[in-house]
């Protein structure tokens, strides 16, 4: 297979927040600790993590829209060059587009139509928008309305439309489908898939592993601020091809795979264990897990674990 160009490369990315406790004592709260993701051209990569694991911050970090008290670490590479704050400003909205999780990202004072066309009135963009809206069962009249006049599901579809308007090279979709019906979810996902097939990179951030497996090429498993595994979507067909105990636990928790569960909850960022964040819930927990664990390549994927589950040790 021909090697595709890497469009987005995130290495050792971290996000922490400055907070003040009891007056002037300043603390730093590390929400994302170790995150590595690469997206190739024409590839759809899903970052899967449970709620509260800090997934949205990844999207905001790439676009440079983190809140003022956040500190970013690690390296972001876009199209072979370091992604600096200036480049983010120049690229976002053009080459890099975000489908945000929150409906609050729509401008409440601008009509839907001109908001998505970004003020453009030429025939081409009008026709394109009409086509996109028709595909999402949105009437033409909707373009003349304001966001507050639409239902949650309609606004959601409007947000997805924004990504389809331009010719993006990188789409970051942050939980794009909550509150939508299943058939609409499928349609939205197939549109992202089309964008990827046309050569764009798509980074899908979601909590829904089943949905991710349906469309994505690769799945990055994210747990409590750390990427624990980077696997091909096909690796999830069987438990044996998965590399990390947490990914395997996720697999076993699928209703069709036994519906088994493990005890405990994902730790809150303030009381994360040292070393592997999954450690305290892991059946293979050892002393070695209490140190910083480097990501390594195993059978075409990456894993951050001291064990080699493939070989049984």
């Amino acid at each position: 297979m021909e090697e595709k160009k890497i469009i987005l490369d995130i290495r050792n990315f971290s996000v922490s927040f400055h907070q003040y406790e009891k007056g002037f004592r300043k603390t730093e709260l590390a929400v994302i600790r170790n995150l590595d993701v690469t997206v190739h051209e024409g590839e759809m990569v899903a970052v899967v993590g449970s709620s509260g694991s800090g997934k949205s911050l990844l999207a905001h970090g790439i676009l440079g829209i983190l809140p003022y008290n956040a500190v970013m670490g690690g390296e972001l590479w876009y199209d072979g060059e370091l992604l600096t704050e200036e480049r983010k400003k120049a690229l976002r909205g053009n080459e890099i587009v975000l489908v945000p999780q929150s409906l609050a990202f729509l401008d409440p004072l601008m009509k839907i139509g001109s908001q998505i066309r970004r003020g453009k009135k030429d025939r081409e963009s009008r026709e394109k928008l009409d086509r996109i809206f028709a595909g999402y069962h949105l009437k033409k009249e909707v373009q003349e309305l304001y966001p507050f006049e639409l239902s949650g599901g309609m606004n959601r579809r409007v947000l997805v439309s924004t990504a389809l308007m331009g010719n993006p090279r990188l789409v970051i979709a942050d939980e794009p489908t909550p509150g939508l019906h299943m058939d609409l979810v499928r349609r939205v996902m197939s549109h992202f898939r089309e964008l990827a097939d046309e050569g764009a990179g798509v980074l899908l951030i979601t909590h829904d592993l089943e949905q991710a497996l349906e469309v994505a090429d690769r799945v990055v498993v994210f747990y409590a601020g750390t990427t624990v595994e980077d696997a091909a979507a096909s690796d999830f067909q069987s438990e044996k091809t998965l590399r990390h105990p947490y990914s395997r636990a996720l697999w076993r928790a699928l209703p069709q795979n036994g519906f088994q569960f493990i005890e405990g909850v994902q730790p809150y960022v303030k009381n994360l264990p040292v070393g592997c964040p999954f450690g305290p819930r892991c059946q293979f927990y050892t002393e070695a897990c209490k140190e910083e664990i480097q990501s390594r390549e195993v059978q075409g994927g990456k894993v951050r674990c001291t064990l080699d589950l493939h070989t049984g040790r």
């Binding site: 909590h207 209703p255 519906f259 569960f261």
Partner: peptide
């Protein structure tokens, strides 16, 4: 629907 798989399985069981 909004829960991760392990929590879903814990709760339903």
């Amino acid at each position: 629907t909004m829960l991760d798989l392990i929590t879903q399985s814990q709760i339903w069981n």
